[in-house]
Design a protein around this nucleic acid. Structure first.
Lengths: 210, 210
DNA sequence: CCTACCGATCGGTAGG
DNA sequence: CCTACCGATCGGTAGG
């Protein structure tokens, strides 16, 4: 029995629950998460699990927020050192691709899969995903505009179009990695990004960057 | 009561079940499908529903196969009239984009969402999705190579890279439509395709097609 | 954090 | 195609 625990121990347990939940959600989806399954995996009771969150939905949101936090620490946080504009964009997307390729199962990019899972279901989960994706695309858009202002991209560049296409490349990489286990996916994604941001790339035969 | 029905009536019922299931799967996912919910929606008993398929998994596969059939009739089938190569590619992807934009909820592109839903779960459903996507990418790849052979694309074109990027554009469109309800998504996707297949497009300032 | 429960719903079967 | 039912599991609560 372990009826009373210190606040620190309770927090540690909460972290353990969320870690396991991230792994389960990566394969079964955020909705496929089950309090019972989580309890068995962690060797504790269902009441012990649910007590940390109050409800399944609160647990799902906590898990999603952990995934978002993980993404932020891994992707934009590692690009802060790069020069704003094109350098930062390629660094950030490179990190994202590495992140997806690292642990195939881990959480792949839970953000991306939850976006697909909840796109037709209004509620706090969809709202949280939307907010995170908006924040990310705002970041990307700002870097694209910085690149344009710095003359790294042509002045007539449609920034939102570039954001759209960059996102597509990331989504294609996610599918190729998680579904097809294609080892060439990261390289393909990198080439696509280079092609897109260099405006006229070598393989297609055109002019070089300004 | 309606204990015995003719074969034709049974088939009609099966079609009704699958139609409703396609709609439910579009919002709740293929795994979120429930025999009980389906039965209530259709005004019949659970046994009546399950009797047509034998098991939930068999029902899921039937639904998925219906979605694949729908995609085939709607996308590649409408491009058979277009000239092989670039024309057929742009027609097919244009149809796909229209298809996704048409009925936001309908089945969006169930194939795409199920691919994300089951990417980490081995089994017949994942296998069926993989087979359908492989068949589609083989088709796209063949058209790209035809375009290269016809001189519509540069001879050094990496066909698989183009397939990867076209897929990314479609995935970005799917997300923008289903999650963000962005009315500009179809136009963005079309522009991206044009940029990709025209090698050097006007908006970015470069050489025209050969 | 546990035991002991709750009503609801799950997929599925028996038998007609 | 229905009624009637099965064991299992769901999310969640009471009470300690």
């Amino acid at each position: 029995m372990s009826p009373r625990k210190s606040a620190a121990e309770a927090t540690a347990t909460r972290v353990r629950i969320i870690e396991r939940a991230l792994a389960l959600a990566a394969t079964d989806g955020l909705d496929g998460l089950t309090i019972g399954r989580l309890a068995i995996d962690l060797g504790m009771s269902k009441a012990g699990v649910v007590g940390h969150f109050g409800s399944k939905e609160a647990l799902q949101i906590a898990v999603l927020e952990a995934a978002i936090e993980q993404f932020r620490r891994r992707v934009p946080a590692r690009a802060v050192g790069a020069d704003p504009g094109l350098r930062r964009l390629t660094t950030a997307f490179g990190e994202w691709i590495d992140y997806m390729a690292e642990d195939e199962g881990h959480s792949g990019c839970l953000l991306t899969s939850v976006a697909a899972e909840f796109d037709g279901r209004p509620g706090p989960i969809r709202d949280a995903v939307l907010a995170a994706l908006m924040s990310w695309s705002t970041y990307v858009s700002a870097e694209v505009r910085t690149a344009v202002a710095a003359g790294e991209l042509p002045p007539e560049t449609d920034a939102e179009q570039v954001v759209f296409e960059l996102n597509g490349i990331a989504l294609a990489a996610a599918q190729a990695i998680q579904l097809h286990h294609d080892p060439a996916a990261p390289a393909r994604a990198r080439r696509a990004i280079t092609r897109l941001l260099d405006v006229a790339p070598p393989p297609m035969g055109s002019l070089g960057s300004p």
